[in-house]
Every structure is written in structure tokens, then in C-alpha cells.
Design a protein around this nucleic acid. Structure first.
Lengths: 337, 337
DNA sequence: CCGGTCGATTACAACGTTGCAGCCCCTGGC
DNA sequence: GCCAGGGGCTGCAACGTTGTAATCGACCGG
């Protein structure tokens, strides 16, 4: 069995509390005592029991991270960044997958007893929408990610979606393109990344005096590679002319770009492509994919920072904070002049 | 504050222990009492405190998963599968990243106090090797993944690496290729996936009577996309002739394939490519990439099953179990006849 | 030389849960 | 009418930790 404070105390000839004090580096301990306790700790290989500590202190040092699915590269890279950010603050991450946009599962997860041993939650929903904002009024610290819910009762870390999408579109326009297709719109939706990015696209067109053509807007179900591929196939089949494609995320853009190339279109000569997310793989596609870097590390770090802040300040109500990360346009081969 | 057993007991007019019994569905409770307690639980929104429960019972319902990095798609997809498998058994997963093959970090992680609130660990090392096997003799249940350590003291879930690599190579040979390059070897290593897969490659060559040419073996540092790309560039620069490439994982193969195409080689006409791992993205690359499906879901499910078994049987020593998942060759455009 | 201060250490209770032992009362058999 | 058996429930202790208050001795200024 694992050694406890009691064992260490007995070996060092001090009280349990003194050992606890040494472990926590409290002051007012004689160097000699400290040394003796340290030696006993090493000898017994003592490790504090986190369950007991957490029972006593109400803290576990664990934060929950709930996101749709790791098999989407964007979320895998986001999880990676968040886990690293958490580690820098000596926190571990408990990871839950809610599936690809299943609203009910997302709601159920918010009150899951599995979150009990968590100090707080970083939540990236895909199925909720703004009218669900009230559901976020849970009894524990939480930080929201993404573009599904705005104005909710919790801190929110997101990005300048409209502006970034506008910048992506303007990048294509600056390269001389005027028939710019969108891959990844969500028909009928009024909330979410798709809506915002399409809005940015329209703003760019308007500013450049290019008429908006609904025939260039390709709707998809989900944002997987296969959806991008199918949308591009459908677009080509309609016979509509286009000279550039804005994939609302990289995965869509990559799927679409592949189909375009198979269909004999040259990239970037015939069609330029730009994506969104700056996934690692966009650096190595053929051609390399221009994209928007949404500031993932900044988002991850800020989310963890805000969550820690919420955890530490206790139940004090406060106006929820909204943080918008900076974006960058990354110009690669798929939009080479 | 969250409701406790005491609160529920007071409201229902029974003892704390009776509430606990209801929660655990113990027998010998009158239906009327059970109902009353149930109602009180609902009214107060009682959720058991997992820290306390775990302090008392020694179980948390959490398993640890330690792997190198989520930004490698293989591990992201593996984590996805393991989290799902764990969920089926009502377990949550605490995820730790050990970095890309950092032996010291991997060793440190094994005794991290962060694992304290974990019932067991699924460990996928990248830096350890067989001589470190003794380090796996930790005091908690553990299941090992991967090909770094064999013959260790713990259950091990892995795959038929040599056979699968041999099958991949024979697939290329059956398509008429004889100058098959390997991308991803690790010079000087004697353990790990690279070694085993190269061995399978050599066995296939030998069986087909094809001489082994060391000039076709490309060493890399890590197994990222950029490493595959650089290795391919180097290979082309040497001027060695080759008509097929076996990427020791999909990421390497995709990186290499891109460089080959940029260099003017046609795939599969001039050079065929096959990878390893059956990542989702191999379905959508240009061309689609042939690969080996290592049975990821089977591996995930087995790992969790074995871990649960170890957890439940307590400290009873037992001969470690080794499970080898089935593989399949997936034939796609990159090796089309 | 005494009261006060401060450094070093300790005793105790409590966090919320569960295992164990035991209590009470009802039922059935003789 | 009494006892055995067992269903239904309760009280107590303990898991390992930490916050609070208390203790004890040494040292200092007056």
C-alpha cells in the first residue's frame, strides 16, 4: 500500500501536520526538521493522496475539456494546445467527446456526474445555439469556446470570425479572383462559425463591389473532408463557373481541393483555394494550402487562464469576459499569384 | 454548495447509510423508502462526491491515457477510440501528453502524482525501449500499447507489425514493383515500430527474391509529415531509382507523396505509395493512399477491457497477457495497377 | 527578572463516503 | 407464548488530508 502522511510522520518522528507543512513548503520549519521529513518522504516514496486532498480542499487539479470529436484535426490540435496550457498551470485534463454536434449529448454532459472530480470545464459545443445560453448557467466554473453561443453567462474565448473570413476572401480578391465559391455553409442556420464566416465573405465582396451569387455557396452537413469533397463534386456538376474557393475550414478545403484537381482543375492557376484553421497538414498538402491562423495557442492559453481565474475567485459573480484571439492570413501555394 | 448524503437523508427522514444504499441499489429496502429517497435525491440534485467515494473505496472511475502527442493524427484517432471504449464501460479518461518520444518524460509520468486519482493507465510510449521494461512494474494496473517494449510485466496490446509490413511490401511487389523505398527507418534502433516494419519489408523482399538495397532505406528523426517530405527530397536528390515507396506510417507517406508529385513523379504510374495506420485523411488525399489498417478500434477496446480486468482483480499477480490485433491491407489509388 | 512576542510544532476536527456490526420488529414454526 | 431468522434500517469508524487553534519554549526589551 502507498505510504501516507502518518507513515512518514512516524518515521521522521514528527507530527502528521508537520509533514504536511513540509510538503507544502510552509515557513517556520527548522531546516533540520525539514531535512528529516524530506528523507522520510523519499525513503517511503510518499505521494499525497489526491482524493483525500481534494475531499478536504474541494479542489482536484483536474479540469474537464468537452469537445465534439478528436478525429477532427482541428479539435485534436486544440486539445493538444489546451492540455499543454493546463500543464503549465499544473492541471490535468479530463477529456470528454460529445460527438459531432449532438445537442442533447452536449446538454447531458453539462450535468454529468463524471465532471464531479473536475474543478471546472472548458466547453466547445457544436450543437447548442444562442437560445441555449441559459443552460450554461451551471454551478461550476466554465469557459466557453466556439461560435455557437454568444452572450451566455460564462467567459467566452473565440476569435474574430467575421473579420478573418473577410480577410481570407479579400486575399483571394487581391489575387484577382471574382468568382469565389464557399464550401461549408450551413443552410438555414443563424448561429455558428459557418454563418459568421459567410458574413465575412459577403462583406468582402460588397467592399470590392463584387455581386453576391448564391450559386457559389455550397452547403454541407458536417465539416469533414468527405463533405468538402462531395460539395466540390456537386459544384462542378452544376457547371457554375468559379475561380477560387474559400473552404470554411481546412478539412473542407483539402477535401474540395482534391476533387477539383482530380477533375482536371489546376491549383492555383484555374482555381485558388484558401482554408481556415491552420492545421498542421495544410503545410504539406499538394499544393500547400493558404489558410487563416485563428491563434489556437492563444485561445488555449486564454481559456485555461480564465478558467483558473474563475476557479480561484470562487462563486463571486462577475460580468462574463469575452476574449477574441488574433488571426493571421497565411499565404501559401494554393493562392500563389 | 452541492448536496451531500446528509442533506438527502435529512430531507427523506432516513439515515445517511440508507441513502447510500439506495444510491447503490442495495437490496432490503422497502419500495416506499426507496421512493422517498429517490424523490429527495431529485429534489436536491444530489450527485455523489467522487473524491470522497474514491478516498473511501480506492476507485475513481477514471483511467489515465498517456500518449506522445495529439497533434499526430494516429494518436488523435487512437485517443478517440479509447475514450469511446472507456465510455462504454462508464469510465472517463484523463489524458496526458508525454511529447514526441521523450524517454525521461515518459518515465517521470509513470510516477506522477497526477495519476493518483486514476484507477489505471493505458500507456503508449515512444521513447522507452525493452531494457526499460522493469520500469513498467508500477504499483497500479496498466496496459501497454505500441512496439517499444516487449516482454514487460504488464498486459500489452499491439499488432502484427512484421506481418503487416510484409503484407504491405508484398502488395507493392504484386503490382510489379521491385525498387521499393522505405521512408521512416530509424538508424541504429533495435526496438520499435520502425525496426519491425523494416523487418517485415525485408522478409517480403527475401521471399520474392528481390535483393535488399540499403540505398532505398530512408532514415528520419520523427514520424511527422515534414520528415516524410524531407526524406523524399533527400532520396530524390541521391538519384537512386525507385518505383514504389512504403511509408512506415501514413503521415510520412503523405508528406513523401507530396514531394514526389511536386518533383514531377506520377502516382501511381511512376511511383506507388503505401502507408500504415489507415488514418481518415488517407481516404481523401490525392491520390487516395493505400495503407494498412492496424485494427485501431479493436486495439482500443481490448486495451480498455484488459485494464478494467486488471483493476477489478486487484493485486493478484498474473502472467501478462499479449493481444495482437488483426490487420488489413487497404488498396487505394496510390497503388492502383 | 518578567511579560510579551514569535518561531516551531502539535492536537483536533472535518471534508463525504462506505464497510461493518448491530439494532428492532415482524413472521413463522413448534 | 417463545424463540429463531431475517428484512429493513441505523450508528460508528475510517479513508488521508488540511485549516484552525492551541501549545511550548526561546528570545528580547524594559
Amino acid at each position: 500500500m502507498a505510504a501516507t502522511l502518518r507513515d512518514v510522520a512516524a518515521l521522521a518522528g514528527v507530527s502528521i501536520k508537520t509533514v504536511s507543512n513540509v510538503v507544502h513548503d510552509f515557513q517556520h520549519i527548522r531546516p533540520a526538521t525539514r531535512e528529516r521529513v524530506r528523507a522520510a518522504i523519499d525513503e517511503l516514496g510518499y505521494k499525497p493522496n489526491i482524493s483525500a486532498r481534494s475531499l478536504r480542499s474541494g479542489r482536484t487539479g483536474v479540469i474537464g475539456l468537452a469537445l465534439p470529436e478528436l478525429s477532427l484535426s482541428y479539435f485534436a490540435e486544440l486539445a493538444d494546445a489546451i492540455i499543454q496550457a493546463a500543464e503549465r498551470r499544473h492541471l490535468v485534463v479530463l477529456l470528454e467527446q460529445t460527438g459531432g454536434g449532438d445537442r442533447d449529448r452536449e446538454i447531458a454532459m453539462l450535468s454529468s456526474p463524471r465532471l464531479q472530480l473536475t474543478d471546472g470545464l472548458i466547453f466547445s459545443p457544436l450543437g447548442l445555439s444562442t437560445e441555449d445560453a441559459a443552460l450554461l448557467n451551471v454551478g461550476y466554473p466554465m469557459v466557453l469556446l466556439g461560435e455557437r453561443v454568444f452572450g451566455g453567462p460564462v467567459d467566452h474565448v473565440t476569435m474574430h470570425n467575421v473579420e478573418a473570413a473577410k480577410a481570407a476572401t479579400m486575399h483571394l480578391i487581391s489575387r484577382g479572383r471574382r468568382r469565389i465559391a464557399i464550401i461549408g455553409a450551413h443552410e438555414g442556420e443563424v448561429v455558428g462559425s459557418a454563418v459568421l464566416r459567410v458574413q465575412g465573405y459577403r462583406e468582402a465582396l460588397a467592399e470590392a463591389g463584387i455581386p453576391f451569387d448564391p450559386a457559389l455557396i455550397c452547403n454541407v452537413g458536417r465539416w469533414h473532408r468527405v463533405d468538402g469533397a462531395e460539395a466540390m463534386r456537386a459544384l462542378i456538376d452544376t457547371g457554375v463557373s468559379f475561380d477560387a474557393v474559400f473552404g470554411l475550414n481546412d478539412t473542407l478545403a483539402l477535401g474540395a481541393m482534391r476533387v477539383a484537381q482530380v477533375a482536371g482543375l489546376r491549383v492555383p492557376e484555374d482555381v485558388m483555394f484558401i482554408g481556415f484553421d491552420a492545421l498542421d497538414e495544410t503545410k504539406y498538402s499538394l499544393p500547400t494550402l493558404s489558410t487563416i491562423d485563428p491563434g489556437r495557442d492563444e485561445i488555449a492559453d486564454t481559456a485555461v487562464r480564465l478558467l483558473v481565474q474563475r476557479i480561484e475567485e470562487g462563486v463571486t459573480p462577475r460580468v462574463p469576459e469575452v476574449y477574441l484571439a488574433d488571426y493571421t492570413v497565411i499565404d501559401r501555394e494554393s493562392t500563389a499569384a
